[in-house]
Nucleic acid binder design. Sequence first.
DNA 1: GTTTTTGTTGATTGACGAGTCAATAAACTT
DNA 2: AAGTTTATTGACTCGTCAATCAACAAAAAC
Lengths: 193, 193
Amino acid sequence: MPKLGMEPIRKAALVKATIVEIGRAGSLDVTVSQIAKRAGMSSALAHHYFGSKEEMFLAAMRHILTLYGAEVRGALVAAEGPEGRIRAILRANFSPTNFRREAVGAWLNFWVLSLSVPQAKRLLAVYQRRLRSNLIAALRPLAGVRAGEIAESLGAMIDGLYLREVLKSGAPDGAAAAAVALRHLEAELARGA
Amino acid sequence: MPKLGMEPIRKAALVKATIVEIGRAGSLDVTVSQIAKRAGMSSALAHHYFGSKEEMFLAAMRHILTLYGAEVRGALVAAEGPEGRIRAILRANFSPTNFRREAVGAWLNFWVLSLSVPQAKRLLAVYQRRLRSNLIAALRPLAGVRAGEIAESLGAMIDGLYLREVLKSGAPDGAAAAAVALRHLEAELARGA
DNA sequence: GTTTTTGTTGATTGACGAGTCAATAAACTT
DNA sequence: AAGTTTATTGACTCGTCAATCAACAAAAAC
């Protein structure tokens, strides 16, 4: 009973399943059959819609990055004032969403994937630039010309804290990470004044 | 013409070859045959000495961590004064060695591996604690009771800067990364005073 | 000098997995 | 109604790969 207009639905299901399976495996070592099964279809259909496993990975990566972008944007609209905007960005970066199994698996594995797949590296670069410009925009009123360099260090701090939170055993603590990042920011701002 | 006492030689060659192959592939998706071939022996011999691929990976990881530890220690013995010790640690972390293809591949992939292999997670934890205690020891004279929290943020900063340097396209710049880390440190110290 | 230990490999096994294809069927077009 | 497009899968191909094994060779032990 083939209904029409299945393509977007199937693709969305496959993308979601891909991310879940990567999270479960903790690696990109997942089979198309696993993914297809979780998405409720045959592996042949997965190939029909995506052509190859790599395309599936890239689509999954786009999806993760889109979600991440949406979370940042969502946090930003509710934010007031420069400091509020910074806090919003930190909140989005260290939200529980990003510490879920699937998100962690996706991020770490996509970093690795970007070592060997140029397309993946490009996707990552786009989002890094976006974070950077968000940070700079929020920092400008607070730090003036130093906004650029502070955005750079704060960005690195965010990545580093996330990585550590994710690699350590035990439950991750996003709030603590955000607090450390905020302390870093205050110190940098104080230094400039 | 089997010479005796081959075991350590063969194992060392395999460990080295494993790291090189992971660097070339940019992932853990390397075959035992590739590794064995690069190490100049049959894949059967590789299995003979290590039993399984996972054991090879773990041995490679131990080796990378040992090299890293040695580099830090080596930089520390030549260092004078608390600030000199911090600088030494930064220099070791951002040395060209750690930006070589093999090292990058090893680090990123071992982070990923630690998501699914507890043994790998444990190895990583040992070295993270060691870095932490090195940092605290050097920071104590400079920061007193705040040494702990500053070590935490500086450690995260180091990881974050390394990650960004490694993921960006173009030649990595360890010196620039070290400079940013140092600026962070100064800001934190100034804040305390 | 025979037995044991160590080193070594080619061949094989057994499994798995990406991607293809032919076939079936429902829905839309003309 | 005939033809086309979309959805769907089971079966299959072709390749790969981790791990095992039997067999051979040299040194050491006895």
